[in-house]
Design a protein around this nucleic acid. Structure first.
Lengths: 109, 109
DNA sequence: TTGACATATGCCTGTATGGGTATATGTTTG
DNA sequence: CAAACATATACCCATACAGGCATATGTCAA
């Protein structure tokens, strides 16, 4: 045993900064691998590998266009993540409320 | 160079399943390390290590209570994550809309 | 079919873990 | 101060990467 595989799930996959950049870039519209390479200044093999990981966890979709491979972010796969983080929303709201409250008490002194 | 450190940021830290469990557990109220060990059936050293990582990226707060260390999730630190994922919301909404639309067209045939 | 173009893989290296076990550190109580 | 209790670290091991470089694979144009 050791560490969990990066390809295990979306949570793990987005841990890599470049992969998040790629997802951002591919969210607006599909792009070929080379476009990503240029846009993010990464090595082509590196991009292909990241795309491979993203694809394995379903974070991107692919489509062949002649000799190019068109990738596109699958927003749907990011939802679980948004929802997980969202379960903490009420807590940070409370925290903010408490801080605000305290601040107001200080001020009214 | 190699991979980014797990302690680099919150995104990376939540990649580990056990750490997400810990955050869930500590969201409702603070708990001592031993409570976590019992609740999640993990080895004590393992829990301490995960807490260390979570603490380094600010995902939990600590407070000493006698010989115990009371940990608590810092929901505020999860917000950036929620927001990042949230930027994709309009995309998955669109995707769902398209799917739904298509389904309705099929039905009406 | 051949060469160019676009990607994907293979391989090697250094590093970052996560788990398990033993042990150090800090705190309380008798 | 000694023993017990609660955590944190130190180590060791096996593994998963991410980056860099070379090369295989797939597709199109002449």
């Amino acid at each position: 045993m050791s560490r969990a595989a990066t390809t295990a799930d979306a949570f793990n996959a987005i841990g890599e900064p470049n992969r998040r950049e790629i997802l951002n870039y591919l969210a607006l519209q599909e792009h070929a691998v080379n476009d990503i390479v240029s846009a993010l200044s990464l090595e082509q093999p590196s991009v292909s590998k990241h795309l491979r990981v993203l694809r394995d966890v379903g974070l991107v979709h692919v489509r062949r266009d002649g000799r190019r491979m068109m990738y596109r972010t699958n927003a749907e796969a990011i939802r679980p993540l948004h929802e997980w983080a969202g379960t903490f929303e009420r807590f940070w709201r409370n925290q903010l409320a408490r801080v605000k409250e305290r601040a107001e008490n200080e001020t009214s002194k």
